[in-house]
């Protein structure tokens, strides 16, 4: 199988519900197929591995035309929370794990988890702020070394 994918490195750069889930689903699906996976969390994507924040990831209700909700309505207090709650409920029904549970499960499948050094410095974070599954804080150069020979997916 010369044309099979052996390794993927997935960059998670967004901190919204709809920004994080696709990356996690791609990562989990790759591991299920026996593909090696590394996840690289950068910018607001760091929230997905942040101990306190990854339980409170919200759906973007403003600037998200896919929701088919008037921008003014999306900005009203409580709308994002309510829509997030609704979405989480729908996903739970489909047995899609919550973000903290999903991240932990993906780590259990043997995927590597790394935080981007530039973003960690920018936000004044440290290793302690992240869940235990995060192996290291790495530079972009180290990421490319790790990704060498595989596919890179930016989300």
């Amino acid at each position: 199988m010369a044309d099979s994918i052996e390794k993927v490195s997935i960059i998670v750069s967004k901190g919204s519900l709809e920004g994080i889930y696709p990356a996690l689903i791609m990562a989990n699906g790759a591991r299920a197929e026996g593909i090696d996976v590394n996840l690289f969390f950068t910018f607001f994507g760091l929230d997905a591995i942040h101990k306190e924040r990854n339980e409170h990831i919200k759906l973007a209700t403003v600037g998200n035309p896919g929701l088919h909700l008037a921008t003014m309505a999306g900005g009203l207090p409580g709308v994002s929370t309510a829509m997030t709650h609704y979405m989480n409920h729908k996903m739970e029904k489909l047995d899609i794990p919550s973000i903290p549970e999903f991240v932990e499960m993906i780590a259990d499948t043997g995927a590597g988890m790394y935080a981007c050094k530039a973003s960690v410095d920018l936000f004044g974070l440290e290793k302690n702020d992240f869940i235990d599954q995060v192996q290291d804080i790495i530079t972009v150069g180290e990421f490319y070394e790790m990704a060498a020979g595989g596919q890179i997916i930016f989300t």
Partner: peptide, 27 residues
């Protein structure tokens, strides 16, 4: 079942599944 369901309901954790059936446990 997928790996997720196996990990939840088979009595074998996701970690152990990957040890027992390396690479792609459900497949």
């Amino acid at each position: 079942p997928t790996v997720r369901l196996l990990g939840k309901a088979s009595g074998v954790s996701v970690k152990e599944l990957y040890q027992l059936f390396p690479k792609a446990p459900a497949k």
